[in-house]
């Protein structure tokens, strides 16, 4: 079996630096999700692991092997491409079996594994069709099946569910998760959907402009974001941030002042107060705010209030009595607050 170890990977395309020096270790059998906004370098990092891009600096190890200078076919990996890359001139059956044929797997074994792969992704009815005769989602499943039957110790997936409709996506997500539990292959999974990332990853590496901001298990990422960017990217709604300045053991924002156990923070420092929507209650005392919108979402209601001019999202019970234009106070536990530096966005140690 094989983990992946990346040391100081740098990748530039002409003047753009797609990967700015990334070191990351994926443990054997781990399901790691690469998450980040469009253009942050997820695909590029994945392609570097696959060997489809040559890195400008750094080393990549798969298991104990230094694969940095090996071509893709010698790295013993399987991959699902963002564009599927399902061969149009082959039937679904030949597509799924392509990698096995290239490895000269004996025919009976090849056929058995193709059958298994097709069954796993519900592709049996389409085995003799050509990709042009499939829907986008079915084609994507062919790409996944082609990668899975390889039994490669490392599996790379680039947004493999992006083209499925919401319902199928939910189903496929659960299937992939179950599959992973069964075969336990080292998996790197790229997505820009944070719900997908939260639900599937053993760990999530949040990327931004070519660097990894934080790499931790989903709940840790959610409760203790390492930066304003991570807090704002993970969670729906994203974390709320209020800007202010420390003064004599208190945090003073626009129109409010909170006592702060300020022993560790020097006076006059600009900070951001980060707080999750579900940790805010409407109370008697606290930060004064004005209700802007109330959106019932079924189980809860999402209330948008304005603190000064800053919108803040509050997760309220669906039977909440607050109404637009009402003045309210926002209360929360000091322990739930995450303090960030206002200029760098980095979280303060707590």
């Amino acid at each position: 079996m094989a983990g992946i170890r990346m040391q100081g990977i740098v990748k530039t395309f002409g003047k753009t630096t797609a990967i700015k020096e990334i070191s990351l270790e994926v443990k054997d059998g781990e399901f790691l999700v690469l998450l980040g906004p469009s253009g942050c370098g997820k695909t590029t990092l994945l392609r570097c692991i696959a060997g489809l891009e040559t890195v400008d600096a750094g080393r990549i190890f798969i298991g104990d092997r230094d694969v940095t200078d090996l071509p893709p076919r010698h790295r013993n990996i399987a991959m699902v491409f963002q564009s599927y890359a399902v061969f149009p001139h082959m039937t679904v059956r030949s597509n799924i079996g392509f990698g096995l044929r290239m490895k000269r797997v004996p025919k009976p074994q090849l056929e058995r594994r193709v059958q298994e792969g097709a069954a796993l992704l519900a592709l049996e009815p389409f085995l003799d069709r050509y990709p042009a005769q499939l829907s986008g989602g079915q084609r994507q499943r062919v790409a996944v099946a082609r990668a899975l039957v390889m039994d490669a110790p490392v599996l790379l997936m680039d947004e493999p569910l992006s083209n499925l409709d919401a319902l199928l996506r939910l189903q496929a997500r659960a299937d992939l998760k179950r599959l992973h539990r069964e075969v336990k292959r080292t998996t790197v999974y790229v997505t820009h959907d944070q719900v997908e990332a939260m639900s599937m990853g053993d760990r999530i590496a949040v990327m931004r402009e070519g660097v990894i901001e934080q790499c931790e298990p989903p709940m840790q990422l959610y409760t203790n974001p390492a930066s304003q960017f991570v807090g704002g990217f993970i969670g729906s709604p994203p974390m709320n941030f209020l800007r202010g300045r420390t003064k004599a053991g208190a945090f003073e924002g626009e129109g409010f002042s909170l006592p702060m156990d300020g022993s560790r923070v020097e006076d006059g420092r600009e900070l951001l107060l980060g707080i999750r929507a579900e940790q805010i209650r409407f109370g008697e005392r606290g930060v004064p705010a004005r209700v802007q919108v109330v959106e019932p979402l079924g189980a809860t209601a999402l209330v948008t209030v304005l603190v000064g001019k800053v919108p803040v999202k509050v997760d309220a019970p669906v039977n909440t009595t607050v109404r637009p234009d009402q003045n309210v106070s926002l209360a929360f536990e000091p322990a739930d607050i995450r303090w960030m530096d206002a200029t760098t966005g980095a979280a303060l140690a707590h």
Binding site: L52, R73, I77, A78, G99, M102
Partner: peptide, 9 residues
């Protein structure tokens, strides 16, 4: 790329 990755020289 896919052909290369899936083992074709």
């Amino acid at each position: 790329e896919a052909a290369d990755l899936f083992g074709a020289n």
